[in-house]
């Protein structure tokens, strides 16, 4: 088994096929979208592949140390042009192919006009522990 992270971006990723902002959809289209996402997560729980899903608020900033005893340096809120992560899902699957298959299914959530959004999801394998045999 291997864990994969599906990263969803508010902005900064390549443009989706059905690129209409949420607030321009009808309420029914938005409901259908939410239902699709919930159903997807539920299905992965049933198959034993779901690990975690979290959403991030849009608010955020850069922070760094400015030396001992000094207050932190901050830069933010994020500029409009910055790549912004909206949230993630973590799955535990048998193969890279299965991870890609699931990410594609998630990306097909319906959007404006009921057509799939086909947004781009960033798929990243987790680092693993070194194997026991052959290690």
């Amino acid at each position: 088994m291997a864990k994969y992270l599906f990263l969803k971006h508010y902005r900064g990723g390549p443009t989706p096929t059905n690129d209409v902002p949420f607030d321009q959809w009808t309420p029914e289209e938005f409901d259908a979208h939410c239902r699709y996402m919930d159903d997807f997560a539920e299905r992965l729980k049933v198959t034993g592949e779901f690990v975690d899903a979290q959403a991030l608020a849009a608010d955020g900033l850069w922070v760094r140390s400015d030396g001992a005893g000094k207050p932190a340096v901050t830069d933010g809120p994020f500029a409009e042009t910055k790549d912004l992560i909206a949230g993630w899902m973590v799955v535990d699957v048998d193969s890279r192919e299965r991870a890609i298959e699931l990410a594609a299914e998630l990306s097909a959530a319906p959007g404006a006009g009921g057509a799939p959004v086909e947004e781009w999801l960033e798929v990243r394998p987790f680092m693993t522990e070194p194997p026991v045999i052959g290690g």
Binding site: F22, T26, P27, F30, C34, D59
Partner: peptide
């Protein structure tokens, strides 16, 4: 600006409804 999903989704629906 919402800090929880239920509220964000609720406000998105409102925006969508008013837009209609």
């Amino acid at each position: 600006a919402a800090t929880n999903l239920a509220e964000r989704d609720h406000l998105t629906r409102r925006a969508a409804r008013v837009n209609q």
